[in-house]
Design a protein around this nucleic acid. Structure first.
Length: 482
RNA sequence: GGCACUGUGGCCGAAUGGCUAGGCAAAGGUCUGCAAAACCUUUUAUAGCGGUUCGAUCCCGCUCUGUGCCUCCA
């Protein structure tokens, strides 16, 4: 691999050069959604980011195995009812109907956002046996204990052998001092112990047989079961939202380390939050925006644009969502697309001479941006730089040899579509002759200064998705609305 | 309360021990039936106070601010 990628690893708190376990291969696991309602834009940010890195690894020629789970077991809320059951009751559906419905919704949204599907998408309820096996192993190793049909992770025993808190960088004394008292706590030997298996009450619909009676798996266990099953006891990258860092990922790490005696993950990547008005977006609080609200509505935005917009901020920064910044991204995006369209036209021209711009150096700067902890905003700024270059070329302020034009075009296209995953709107898909006829008519009526007719043609075409622009020389160009 | 992270121009957002991306917006101008666009030119920034350094926005300390995690969360 020619490009050396640096990744900020939560485990070490530093940027580290990425070295895969098996050369040329990379295994990535990310925590997928709990499918009890629609995913919101904050969720989308995380999935779009991991799509970016999967795409980049692929672009560099890595063989990627990307595993992203679906959590379809509801985890308990304070009232003792889990989220999926609660939603099922509210929507008057079976729990399985709820998970099916929102799994489909999740797939739909992610596909509209042009994310590549994972190579494996395991489902929590499809891995109950694996989870039970892990619990048995933990009990055998003295790292878990059963109480009244529930099984808990034995943290006191764990910390005699390993450090707890290495991922989220907390020390155990602080954790003890600040742990809340919850109802289930009286069953636990130690306040920080967490559930691996919970006994189900008779009315609990989603439950399975186990050596400890009917119950359901604990929150953290499914990810350990599914990640290690498909990626091995030690794999390259584990990711998720920053809000999963503690306790979820910390517990996952403890479980896996306890079972295999190996640190399970080489690089932990956490995506920062998407906020609105500087407050975290979250499903449970209801403070959120759904992607569908942006796709439809009075002023709608394309999924393409939303993707571009999200990638304009670095994944480790908090990103505050606002319509205003989305609008400014939209303008910039249109301009960039216009530059690219111009560039496409230039490929046909056979210029010979000495280029005044170092395209190869520009390409390497694009790679460098991505290599530096997946800095997509910086990559985008380079794309704009290329856009400005194209303008300067057209005006004769810069010169590019035909080979450089082709090189620039190929790389700009690839970085946009293959790496950033942004679709470039294709050329006109309508009947050219019909359009030409309309333009011809419009030209005639304009000569006669029948502005109402000419404006009507322009407006109608705009609603059909095309922008008419009258040029200074009397010609008119037609572009798709990006 | 504990532990983290953050603070860059009017807005969004990069980067960096010395020459500081990009986008949007703003102002003036060119063009124009109108519209939109485009183009040219221009302006504005590193929360505060100390310290290290020849030099800090970048490193260190303190203060203030905001946010996150500590409970389900991407």
């Amino acid at each position: 691999m020619k490009q050396k990628i640096k990744i900020y690893n939560t485990l070490s708190g530093k940027k580290e050069t990425f070295v895969p376990i098996i050369q040329g291969h990379v295994g990535i696991y990310t925590c997928g959604p709990t499918v009890y309602r629609e995913i919101h834009l904050g969720n989308c940010r995380t999935f779009i980011f991991f799509d970016l890195i999967v795409r980049y690894f692929k672009y560099l020629g890595y063989k990627v195995r990307y595993v992203r789970n679906i959590t379809d077991v509801g985890h308990l809320e304070d009232e003792g009812e889990d989220k999926i059951s609660k939603r099922a009751r509210l929507e008057r559906l079976e729990p399985m109907e709820i998970t099916q419905k929102y799994t489909l919704d999740f797939h739909h949204i992610l596909s509209v956002l042009n994310t590549l599907p994972p190579n494996i998408e395991p489902i929590a309820t499809g891995h109950i046996l694996e989870q039970i096996e892990l619990i048995v192993k933990l009990i055998d190793k003295g790292l878990a204990y059963e109480v009244n049909g529930s099984v808990y992770f034995d943290l006191k025993s764990y910390i005699q052998r390993y450090d707890y808190g290495i991922l989220s960088h907390r020390n155990i004394e602080d954790l003890i001092a600040n742990t809340r008292n919850l109802k289930a706590q009286n069953e636990k030997r130690y306040t920080l112990d967490f559930a691996l298996w919970k006994k189900a009450s008779p009315k609990h619909l989603m439950s399975w047989n186990s050596p400890w009676g009917k119950g359901f798996p604990g929150w953290h266990l499914e990810c350990t079961a599914m990640s290690t099953k498909y990626l091995g006891n030690v794999f390259d990258i584990h990711g998720g939202g920053i809000d999963l860092k503690f306790p979820h990922h910390e517990c996952e790490l403890a479980q896996a380390l306890g079972i295999s005696e190996k640190n399970p993950v080489r690089y932990w990547i956490h995506v920062n939050l998407l906020t609105i008005k500087d407050k975290k977006m979250s499903k449970s609080s209801g403070h959120l925006i759904l992607p569908s609200e942006l796709f439809t509505g009075e002023k709608s935005f394309s999924a393409n644009l939303i993707r571009f917009f999200m990638l304009q901020s670095h994944y480790r920064s908090v990103f505050d969502f606002s319509i205003q910044s989305l609008l400014s991204a939209e303008k910039g995006f249109h301009r960039l697309m216009k530059y690219f369209t111009t560039l496409k036209r230039l490929i046909a021209e056979k210029n010979r001479g000495l280029s005044t711009f170092d395209v190869k150096d520009w390409i390497q700067r694009c790679y460098d941006a991505m290599n530096d902890d997946f800095n997509s905003p910086k990559l985008i700024s380079h794309l704009f730089e290329a856009g400005n270059l194209i303008e300067s070329f057209v005006k004769g302020k810069e010169f590019l040899d035909i080979y450089d034009i082709q090189l620039l075009h190929r790389n700009m296209r690839n970085f946009l579509t293959e790496v950033l995953g942004v679709n470039i709107p294709s050329d006109l898909t309508v009947n050219h002759k019909l359009i030409d006829l309309l333009l011809e008519i419009r030209k005639l009526v304009r000569k006669e200064k029948k502005w109402d007719i000419s404006d009507r043609i322009r407006n109608e075409l705009f609603h059909l998705g095309y922008s008419l622009i009258d040029n200074e020389d009397g010609s008119t160009c037609l572009n798709p609305n990006f």
